[in-house]
Computed example of a mutant assay.
Amino acid sequence: MNKKDLVAKIAKDSDVTLRDATKMLDSFCAAVGETTKTGESVALVGFGTFSLTERSERKGRNPQTGEEITIAASKSVTFKAGKALKEAVS
């Protein structure tokens, strides 16, 4: 399922226009992005939790040359599925 399909599903289930469903999904994505950027997590009970993870600087190897390189520290967003979502998928 891509964004277009998801927007269509939201519009159909919520009885709203595609434009309104797109605004809702974009707003949700922006809110999750802004919140996790500050270091807070977004917890949706039963669905899951979006949170910020920090990776420290580490050593790695260039697979083509075998040369050792330094991989810079970075931040990433992780998602941990909630119990209800895990049960729905299983």
Results as ranks from 00 to 15, higher is better:
2 N>F: 11
2 N>Q: 14
2 N>T: 15
2 N>S: 11
2 N>R: 14
3 K>P: 11
3 K>E: 15
6 L>T: 07
6 L>N: 01
6 L>K: 00
6 L>R: 00
7 V>M: 02
7 V>Q: 03
8 A>W: 00
9 K>S: 15
10 I>A: 05
12 K>S: 15
12 K>Q: 15
13 D>H: 04
13 D>F: 02
15 D>K: 03
15 D>F: 02
15 D>L: 06
15 D>P: 00
16 V>K: 02
16 V>L: 11
16 V>Q: 06
18 L>M: 06
19 R>H: 12
20 D>T: 09
21 A>I: 11
23 K>V: 04
24 M>Y: 12
24 M>Q: 12
25 L>H: 03
27 S>Q: 02
27 S>F: 03
28 F>W: 06
29 C>G: 02
30 A>P: 00
31 A>D: 03
31 A>V: 12
32 V>M: 01
32 V>A: 00
32 V>N: 00
33 G>Y: 00
33 G>K: 01
33 G>F: 01
34 E>A: 03
35 T>S: 05
35 T>D: 01
36 T>R: 01
36 T>Q: 04
37 K>D: 12
37 K>I: 08
37 K>H: 10
38 T>H: 08
39 G>V: 07
39 G>Q: 05
39 G>H: 06
40 E>D: 13
42 V>K: 02
43 A>I: 11
44 L>K: 00
44 L>Q: 01
45 V>I: 11
45 V>L: 03
46 G>A: 07
48 G>E: 01
48 G>W: 05
51 S>L: 02
52 L>Y: 05
52 L>H: 04
52 L>V: 02
54 E>T: 08
55 R>D: 04
55 R>Y: 09
55 R>F: 11
55 R>W: 08
56 S>W: 00
56 S>H: 06
57 E>C: 10
57 E>R: 01
58 R>V: 05
59 K>E: 05
59 K>Q: 02
59 K>T: 03
60 G>N: 00
60 G>H: 03
62 N>G: 08
62 N>P: 02
63 P>G: 10
65 T>H: 08
66 G>M: 12
66 G>K: 10
66 G>D: 10
66 G>A: 12
67 E>D: 14
67 E>S: 12
67 E>A: 15
67 E>T: 15
68 E>C: 08
68 E>P: 09
68 E>D: 13
69 I>N: 11
69 I>H: 13
70 T>M: 08
70 T>S: 12
70 T>Y: 09
72 A>V: 09
73 A>N: 01
74 S>R: 04
74 S>H: 10
75 K>M: 08
76 S>H: 09
76 S>E: 10
76 S>K: 09
77 V>C: 07
77 V>K: 03
77 V>E: 07
77 V>P: 04
78 T>G: 14
78 T>E: 14
78 T>M: 13
78 T>C: 11
79 F>S: 05
79 F>V: 04
79 F>H: 02
80 K>Q: 14
80 K>A: 15
81 A>K: 01
81 A>H: 04
81 A>W: 03
81 A>R: 04
83 K>Q: 14
84 A>C: 06
85 L>K: 09
85 L>P: 09
85 L>R: 05
85 L>I: 06
86 K>Y: 12
87 E>P: 10
87 E>Y: 14
87 E>I: 12
88 A>W: 07
89 V>N: 15
90 S>H: 11
90 S>Q: 13
